[in-house]
Design a protein around this nucleic acid. Structure first.
Lengths: 181, 181
DNA sequence: GTCCGCATGTAAGGCGTTACATGATTAA
DNA sequence: TTAATCATGTAACGCCTTACATGCGGAC
């Protein structure tokens, strides 16, 4: 019964979705099952405990469910505090650690920025994202130059894949900046 | 004290590295700290328990450490059973679930194929990989066509990033096939 | 003789996975 | 009335994370 202080990828997904409109746990499940957001997570044994934790943190609250029947439904909406938390989370600078270990998280942060943080911050995020990737790609290339003579064929190809993936992400970010302006 | 039956990403990394040459836990740590393999994992609280589990499964065994001093060192080498397990794991077909949820794992499987599974199987892996990605990209595009009118700008851009990432991976796989032949 | 790096671990906690449980409502 | 779907959960388990603990050996 510890309060959640940071946002796991799943919690971010949940809070982001609820920030767009009030949802029940079942609604969230459906989103995860039927959209590419399901990438990031899966199902009931994770979602309901996460909802509980987020509610205990004060970021969402359950509201009376006035559907047409008195069927058991718990609808959650975001609180002012939750919105602020989300804004702060999405405004965090992009660190090199993020780029190395949490690319999924970064992409999710970006996906929820509409209407939560201004266009200016969104663009700044993409700029930071691109330049952190550039730095990381430079590291990877440095390592690769030294190691490619001893790497086996598949290892080498796997590394090339990694480098290309990062480069593609940087290119995407720069295109996205232009598109947002 | 359950026996490990499947390979977590970390366990696969460890078993794959030890299959290349005998290593200590500390050696593994250094690899994770100093090479891009560190992407997939991190450190001592994960590595040592994982080594223990893999040893209990019978896939590696500790051998006498005959360094120049009698310093405490535990060197692990792969067993025949471990090699077989690794071969089977790397030979598993690429499923659509793998592509949706475990791309990291797939890339790691590929990176360790040299000398473990034949070139033929390696190429087959890449072919399956590419065609599973094609199928998944088709799904994503289908969803995207239906949703892009209601997706917010950042959501749309994030989806485009996802699709492009997958497409890049399929292209990479097809280039890799040519290079391996 | 003290400090840093080598080398191996343990303990607590968090969170996701799988599988199961429960009951209410609607359509056949 | 039976089955499928809606809707919400719990329990056990596994594994990773962070932080801490411990002791040897070499360099200065």
């Amino acid at each position: 019964m510890k309060l959640e202080t940071d946002l796991s990828t799943l919690s971010l997904a949940i809070l982001g979705l609820i920030s767009q409109r009030p949802l029940t746990g079942y609604d969230l499940r459906k989103v995860f099952l039927t959209t590419p957001m399901g990438h990031f997570s899966s199902s009931p044994g994770a979602i309901y405990p996460a909802l509980r934790r987020i509610e205990e943190a004060g970021w969402i609250r359950s509201v009376a469910a006035q559907g047409q029947t008195r069927r058991q439904r718990v609808v959650y909406e975001i609180t002012a505090c939750g919105l602020e938390t989300l804004q702060q989370h999405l405004s965090r600078p992009v660190t090199s650690e993020d780029v190395v270990w949490h690319m999924d998280d970064l992409m999710m942060r970006f996906a929820f920025m509409d209407g939560i943080v201004g266009r200016e911050r969104t663009v700044r995020f993409l700029e930071d994202f691109a330049s952190q990737i550039d730095a990381h790609v430079a590291d990877l290339r440095r390592y690769f130059e030294g190691a490619k003579s001893i790497l086996p064929a598949c290892g080498k190809l796997a590394m090339e894949n990694g480098i290309q993936s990062y480069e593609m992400n940087a290119q995407w970010a720069r295109r996205a900046i232009k598109e947002l302006q």
